[in-house]
Amino acid sequence: MPDVIELNRVGLRFGAQDILREISLRVAHNEFVSIVGPSGSGKTSLLKCVNRLVEPTSGLVSIDGSPARELKVEDLRRSIGYVFQGIGLFPHMSVAENVSITPRLNGADKTATGSLVADLLKLVELPATLAARMPHELSGGQRQRVGIARALAAKPRIMLMDEPFGALDAVTRESLGHSVRRLHQQLSLTTLMVTHDMMEALLLSDRIVVLVDGAIRFDGSPADVLNSTDDVVASLVAVPRRSADRISAMLQQPRSRA
């Protein structure tokens, strides 16, 4: 059985600038892979090569073993969930209309999508009463949950996420992170997530890919990341490690005082 996502020596150039250099990456079924790296390292471009929001200049992207560029681009995108920091809910459509957009593009009529909307809202832990609301009436966290529901509507097997929690407060990030991981298991998704936050990557992923200047610098499990001697990886881990140390120290103090 082929890997769900396979990038084979993918390169991307804008003018004289190399955005991506010879990226080769395989993501297996139901794997949760995070792409981490400093800003400008090409993370978002790499993600967009998968659903062809960006067309690679060289190399090959395959989905379930077939080259992505040979598929009809709209069909490819409709079969892949896409969630991003900007969320991009359609401001003139209700929550229900936003959520059911992809099935409707695929030809489903409005009556058929009614129960689907209810199921999806439940799946992302939103009350069914939100279906009739307009996007501007929702909080940031609710909006991103609707964004996730929209991405899941066409029952995709792949989920692409670009800084999905970037614009949210810490509490919302945390609870949404849990939901995403749960949905990943529950729906047997294959997830590729871009984040600049190593902590988030460590807590959610099965595997972490570190991208520096458009090339893969490191590829391994969260445990491998923590034990890596690579200086870039170590610097990316330094902040979460210090926070964790400080918090565990604080947690131990009252006990030692007692």
Partner: peptide
Amino acid sequence: APDVIEASDAVGMTRRQRLTLVDIP
């Protein structure tokens, strides 16, 4: 908004669908 345009592409709208479902409304 660029986010709305990105979303239109990402959900798999054709040019014509984007025109009638997003741009014109």
